[in-house]
């Protein structure tokens, strides 16, 4: 597909790219600004830095008082402990990571596969009470998920979805489909329907026209939407902890939380597990950062 993101998502007038002219105040002001921002950045990033440090410190350095910032021995043992059990073989934590990959991946794919065609239909067709339907779909996101966790728990126990990956996949899909529909509808609205009309006159059916012409133009939007859905499913904690009970099903967030507690806490292991957990989302977000910005500014905002 030869369409770049910029072409596909910015049909509006090109914004002025020049930075706004700095207000008067000169060099002194710049120094103060930079200093304040640097302090803020240090405060914000310190927990992350500390997590990274902790994950590569030996245990005695982790508990050292006063804390050691620089002069500690670097070790990767904690990362090994995340995946390899002391007797050899995989740890339960590594199983949890695999569960997270399966649950987040499948629910994202499902939400996309269901949500994109729905968004297309809402954008292209005249549907009875379309606005009411869309509002209803959105209304499922009005309340914080934790509000419904007990009813869902009871229902799941009744129908046998409690403590299954399928159960988690379904609940995450249910939360992501409305989001996908709303965000994708914005993107579909941006792609002129005439492409499909022209393709239909050229001999394609409506679905072929969608598949061959509209879908490729929607790819940036789909990428952005899917990453948002993926991040939600990957990070989700409340349902994961309430709806699972066994290590075989548990996803990474409750599993990592479960490392804390007990008599001693292996902070090195917690830090290493947290980093391993954070990495995929960071990498994904970095890869599609352009699309994410497009998604935030275009798909989600009504003009």
């Amino acid at each position: 597909m030869a369409v770049s993101v910029d072409e596909a998502v910015s049909p509006g007038p090109v914004r002025d790219r020049r930075p706004p002219r700095r207000r008067s105040g000169g060099r002194g002001r710049v120094v103060i600004e930079v200093a304040v921002l640097a302090v803020l950045a240090a405060v914000m990033l310190f927990p992350v830095l500390w997590m990274i440090e902790t994950s590569i410190k030996e245990n005695r350095d982790v508990y050292a008082i006063p804390a050691k910032f620089f002069d500690f021995t670097v070790t990767l043992d904690h990362f090994k402990d995340v995946f390899v059990a002391s007797g050899g073989g995989p740890t339960t934590l590594s199983g949890s990571f695999l569960n997270s990959v399966i649950v987040a991946g499948v629910s994202t794919v499902l939400a996309t596969v269901l949500g994109v065609p729905a968004a297309w239909a809402y954008s292209r067709f005249s549907v009875k009470a379309k606005k009411d339907q869309l509002f209803f779909i959105l209304s499922t996101r009005f309340m914080p998920p934790v509000v419904v966790v007990i009813p869902i728990f009871l229902m799941y126990r009744q129908v046998g979805l409690f403590d299954t990956k399928l159960g988690l996949i379904l609940i995450y899909t249910a939360f992501n489909v409305p989001f996908t529909i709303w965000m994708m509808k914005g993107f579909v609205d941006e792609v002129p329907a005439e492409y499909e009309d022209a393709a239909m006159l050229d001999g394609y059916t409506r679905l072929q026209a969608f598949w061959k012409f509209t879908l490729p133009l929607l790819l940036p939007g789909i990428a952005a939407t899917a990453v948002f859905a993926l991040i939600f499913s990957w990070n989700e904690f409340v349902f994961a902890i309430f709806l699972t009970s066994s290590d075989a099903v548990r996803t990474a967030p409750p599993a990592i939380a479960g490392l804390i507690g007990g008599t001693t806490v292996d902070w090195g292991l917690v830090a290493a597990a947290s980093i391993v957990f954070a990495l995929p989302v960071l990498i994904f977000s970095y890869l599609v950062r352009k699309h994410l910005v497009a998604g935030v500014t275009l798909g989600a905002v009504r003009r």
Binding site: V3, E194, Y195, A198
Partner: peptide
């Protein structure tokens, strides 16, 4: 022929 020309962009 459409108002928006609907040429396939790719």
């Amino acid at each position: 022929v459409f108002q928006f020309y609907a040429l396939y962009p790719h």
